[in-house]
Write a protein that binds this DNA or RNA. Structure first.
Length: 372
RNA sequence: GGGGGAGUGCCCGAGUGGCUAAAGGGGGCGGACUGUAAAUCCGUUGGCGCAGCCUACCUAGGUUCGAAUCCUAGCUCCCCCA
């Protein structure tokens, strides 16, 4: 790896699955690794100290949202995101590429960049690859993302192809603009679920050349088998000695399936969002705690979970918090859902190193088969 | 003692002769959520033998082809003056 302060080593393989180590200026990350999402420099409802206790190694923040509020200069005044949000481990910032997709109704894509209407006050902002890199340099995350156009495979082939082209040009512009040392810039592959477009995007992004690669544009509405087939293809196309990051997957079953196909790290809002809407991952699939059947259920959320919520409270109490919209409910359920994913990753690492990943995956599939 | 106002579905609250099984909100029940515009959004919410019928807008009568809506009496509640 050519980026100063970083190293990446695959330490064990089991099938396509890998157990690896990424060294960063803020510590090592062992993979497979789930990265909690903290868009506005906070993993909603969970304090950094708790993230650490849960076993989180890296957290995300979002360039576009922090650029709008509070503004990167405020963050920079704290010495960057680490000081600002009180997390001393590795941080990754997404570039704003996802907002090109999620804020579709308030944005206009042009070849030079994307014009957004601020979701806060309607003011217009043009995000370019150069600006996305500059803001990310100011924010000071360890790992930063190229500015891309997230285009789901549900769009027309022409649209996905156009997104592939722009993503390549923008990736080159990001690389050229990147100046800050000791900061890992990650290139993103697009192409929806079309094999030819994925091959083209992987080749082009690979030609630009990055020390780590991300798989973007998946888990955004396409069919599950198409998604997994695309991940398998990416395993063949991406260099085996570089970190692979699947952007946006965080359900227990899906996570295991992408680990099985050679992905090292991934992030997702799902565990914390589900928690805030009353749903938890459990050994019997997802449980929506608002359901009346939990009203008098004195059992813990999940007998086998070691999180604070499971060790301390009954389903009936947690349901009460959720139904009454007590803020503690969002907090406790977030702790639990994050713990489930982080523990699964820890177990996956152990299994890969022991050459027992297939067996482990089978166990997870059985345990979380009810949609967990 | 005098004057005025109000009683609607689990709750609040629109509705003042047919388009009303009754707006809207809350609550209840259920669903969704995957690089976070999300403590959000969606559906549903009288009963049944369910293209129909039954029961429903404080109670009991009445007017009318037809009443939550008009009339009479009663019950309950609220406000103002003394």
């Amino acid at each position: 790896m050519t980026t100063e302060g970083f190293a990446f080593t695959v330490e064990a393989r089991d099938g396509r699955a890998r157990a690896a180590r990424l060294s960063t200026p803020h510590g090592d990350v062992v993979t497979p690794c789930f990265m909690p999402v903290g868009t506005k420099a906070t993993v909603k409802a969970v304090a950094p100290r708790e993230l650490r206790e849960l076993g989180a190694q890296v957290v995300l923040a979002n360039t576009y949202h922090l650029y709008l509020r509070p503004g990167s200069e405020i963050v920079a005044a704290h010495g960057g995101l680490h000081g600002f949000m009180g997390w001393d481990g590795p941080i990754l910032t997404d570039s704003g590429g996802f907002q090109v997709f999620s804020l579709e109704s308030t944005r206009v894509i042009r070849d030079e960049g994307v014009e957004f209407a601020s979701v806060y006050d309607g003011s217009r902002h043009v995000f370019t690859p150069e600006l996305a890199v500059r803001v990310q340099e100011d924010l000071g995350a360890d790992i930063i993302m190229a500015f891309d156009q997230c285009a789901p495979g549900t769009l027309s082939l022409d649209e996905v192809a156009a997104a592939v082209d722009r993503t390549t040009r923008w990736a080159a512009a990001c690389k050229a603009a990147h100046r800050r040392p000791r900061q890992l810039l990650v290139g993103i592959v697009q192409g929806g679920v079309d094999e030819a477009l994925r091959r083209r995007s992987a080749a082009e992004i690979g030609d630009v050349g990055f020390d780590a690669y991300a798989i973007g544009g998946l888990s955004v509405g396409e069919r599950g088998d198409d998604m997994l087939a695309t991940v398998e293809l990416m395993d063949e196309l991406l260099p085996g000695d570089r970190l692979r990051y699947f952007m946006g997957i965080g359900d227990p079953l899906g996570m295991i399936e992408v680990i099985r196909r050679g992905v090292d790290v991934f992030d997702c809002v799902l565990p914390t969002r589900l928690a805030r809407t009353g749903t938890v991952f459990s050994g019997v699939g997802r449980m929506n705690l608002r359901n009346a059947r939990f009203a008098d259920d004195l059992a813990p959320l999940d007998e086998s979970c070691d999180c604070y919520a499971c060790r301390t409270f009954s389903r009936a109490y947690l349901r009460h918090l959720v139904v009454q919209r007590e803020i503690l409910g969002a907090h406790l359920l977030s702790l639990h859902n994050l713990r489930v994913l982080l523990r699964l990753c820890a177990d996956a690492r152990t299994a890969i190193r022991a050459g027992r990943f297939a067996e482990f995956a089978e166990y997870v599939a059985e345990r979380y088969s009810a949609g967990g």
